[in-house]
């Protein structure tokens, strides 16, 4: 479904990704681990189309289409979702209204009719429970004044509502207490199907205990230096990253 070939990317002339290869098939959950600053978010941003990074080499195809040529929203409408590491707040914009606008954009793209306000509220009330977020958050402005954990739950709420094919979770676990972590992992696990894929970015092994990834990749200085199964995460937990560095 997603094929990344030899991606090089830079910002302000500084090379950050130095040849990434990664291929994700339907139903798979891949985890990327790495220290702060190794380029994990950069990779997520390139897949979703953020403009401030320059792809200098390589290709990304998504369901056979050249992803790099698509606009940000076309990628989103094609089924790619990112749970942001740092979700931005949008003052004055009602959270539920925002989510309905996003859902309607998707329905419209699929040639379906838009969802009306009352059906939407019914739908969203269900989902809110899944992430253990109070309903009152729906009527607040998007992420405005939300705590770190509330923002992350809100991201997952959006994922559950928009039902993407490929979900990129950029450090959705960081800053969460253990209960919140479980809630979110559970939300994701219940959401897993044979067609939905995930790319979970983290630098803790913690999340993976709950999520059971199919593959683990270690990103160091813009390159995937090692890939493996869950045992790799355990090794990292014991030995840290240095044994993988040259």
């Amino acid at each position: 479904m997603l094929i990344i070939k030899n991606i090089h990317a830079s910002v302000d002339g500084k090379e950050i990704l130095k040849g990434i290869n990664l291929s994700i098939k339907p139903g798979e959950l891949h985890a990327i681990m790495g220290r702060n600053g190794s380029g994990k978010s950069t990779l997520a941003n390139i897949i979703t189309g953020r403009d401030n990074f320059l792809v200098t080499k390589g290709s990304i195809t998504y369901n056979g289409n050249n992803l790099l040529e698509m606009s940000i929203e076309d990628r989103a409408l094609a089924g790619i979702f990112m749970s942001f590491q740092y979700p931005v707040s949008i003052p004055g914009v009602n959270n539920a209204y925002f989510l309905r606008a996003a859902l309607n954009a998707k329905l419209k793209h699929q040639g379906k009719s838009e969802i009306n306000a009352s059906d939407f509220m019914r739908l969203i009330r269900e989902k809110v429970k899944l992430v253990n977020l109070d309903e009152s958050y729906l009527s607040r402005a998007v992420n405005d004044g939300f705590s770190g954990g509330e923002k992350k739950r809100n991201e997952i709420l959006q994922m559950l509502t928009l039902e993407p094919e490929l979900s990129i979770l950029d450090e959705t676990d960081s800053g969460l207490d253990i209960d919140a972590l479980k809630t979110i992992a559970e939300g994701v696990n219940n959401f897993r199907t044979e067609t939905r894929s995930f790319l979970a970015i983290t630098h803790y092994q913690r999340l993976l205990e709950y999520m059971h990834p199919d593959y683990i990749h270690v990103l160091i200085d813009g390159k995937i230096v090692k890939s493996g199964d869950i045992s790799l995460a355990n090794q990292l937990e014991e030995k840290g990253y240095s044994w993988l560095e040259k």
């Binding site: 189309g49 929203e73 949008i90 996003a102 402005a141 928009l162």
Partner: peptide, 27 residues
């Protein structure tokens, strides 16, 4: 950042601008 966030949720830039501006005027 706000525009990117909206775009990433599939909302077109034009709609995103009007959404953000309306939010700005909320008070």
């Amino acid at each position: 950042d706000q525009l990117f966030y909206c775009n990433q949720r599939g909302i077109s830039t034009e709609d995103a601008v009007s959404l953000i501006v309306n939010g700005f005027c909320k008070d």
